[in-house]
Nucleic acid binder design. Structure first.
Lengths: 237, 237
DNA sequence: ACCTGAACACCGTTCAAGT
DNA sequence: ACCTGAACACCGTTCAAGT
């Protein structure tokens, strides 16, 4: 007697399709993701994909949701949204930094996610990020009147900065050296007209030498410092 | 004797092509900008456009540069980049707010510009924005060690927030009511699981009622306040 | 020098036809 | 229920041919 597996291992499914799409996006770039390429990789017809996924937008949305969910699954990012101040042992400012860096690194590793945000905010996985940030603001003791604007500024900065960073990375030809490209731009700034661009000339060396993650975190810290001036008290010991 | 005009008034030129592209982008959306549609509007062949512009990326870059240049031509945004503190009578923080709002409004009016930033930062018109912000930081008396990070955080937030705002606007069907769509999302947040999403439930009413420009400016102010804590002195009177 | 428009090599999406 | 792959209606870009 033969025991049939209820499903062939290689049966098409939304999960398999989304994973194949992520593989293509990461490995060959956004331009390489076509239904024909996807069908070839899955050894099926291009039309079969439409049985499982509505269209290309839905495919990109599902792939993005996957990546963000992954990024949020780190231990430091769950829990701690209690209004009593957290209670999971992580200082709220530090927790916000960890969440922010998690998003930054995830988008850096999957640059196409950045472009996707513009087309589909309010995705389910995003809600978990939003809540995690908001919960830490409660734990920080930010006064109620400032909740919404403080939360909005943080979330906007985190996703905006991560997206811009990834876009810069995507601009480069796949094999080229990132720091060399940056040095090129910094060199261009250093040669700008001193009368018109005194500031950019001054900061050109720092542009060429900066670390992206540190620069990103410095921005998060500036916003946190600004939020601190609203409540007017120092962080809890 | 006949005096020939050196150029027919309707002769093709990069300027005319870019303007026609902007008209299409603003009036019919990003999906409507094709070389065929552009050629039809300019009463020429689709191939003629390639004589004046390298490809579609260059066309979008030129259109974006136009819009940003326009946004920066406002009087309050020029000058004032002297290290002696400005001297054009506008308080630096207020000048930064004006510049930021100018960018925000320009991208709000031309939402496609937001999507374009990801593909081409470092555009010439952008440099003027970058310099204008940096110059005001000097005027604010920010210490040298903080120049780069403070500048970077401001510029990142301004373009990131403006882009995200425009993307949200673009998501909606052209005819629909913006506040109704926001109320829908806010309603969704209000119905989230209280155990998992206490923060989002709390701020849902503010999400539905907020003013986008005010929210944006509040973020700029938070960063400026954070920058203030770095230098540790109050703004000059 | 500048313009024309057919041709080429692609797309996303649909759908009759298969199993 | 799920899959196939040809067909449809598009794209951006090129290029021989015109003026």
């Amino acid at each position: 007697m033969t025991i049939r597996t209820e499903r062939r291992n290689d049966a098409l499914s939304k999960e398999r399709i989304v994973q194949a799409a992520i593989d293509i996006l990461d490995g060959e770039g956004e331009g390489a993701l076509t239904f024909r390429a996807l069908a070839r990789r899955l050894a099926t017809g291009s039309g079969a994909i439409y049985w499982h996924i509505a269209d290309k937008d839905a495919l990109l949305a599902a792939a993005t949701d996957d990546v963000v969910t992954q990024a949020m699954s780190g231990g430091a990012m769950s829990g701690g949204s209690m209004s009593d101040g957290g209670g999971d042992g992580v200082e709220p400012r530090e927790a916000i930094r960890v969440i922010a860096l998690g998003i930054f690194d995830a988008i850096d590793a999957h640059p196409w996610v950045g472009a996707q945000f513009s087309r589909a905010p309010w995705q389910p996985a995003m809600l978990r990020v939003f809540e995690a940030i908001g919960g830490r603001l409660w734990a920080l003791g930010v006064p109620e009147a400032a909740w919404f604007n403080a939360w909005s500024a943080l979330v906007t900065y985190i996703f905006g900065a991560a997206t811009q960073n990834a876009a810069n990375a995507r601009l480069q030809a796949p094999g080229t050296d990132r720091s060399a490209a940056l040095a090129d731009i910094a060199g261009g700034w250093a040669r700008l007209d001193p009368a018109q661009y005194p500031f950019l000339r001054q900061v050109a060396p720092q542009l060429g030498a900066h670390d992206d993650r540190e620069q990103f975190l410095a921005g998060v810290d500036l916003i946190l410092a600004g939020i601190g001036t609203v409540k007017g008290k120092s962080p809890p010991a």
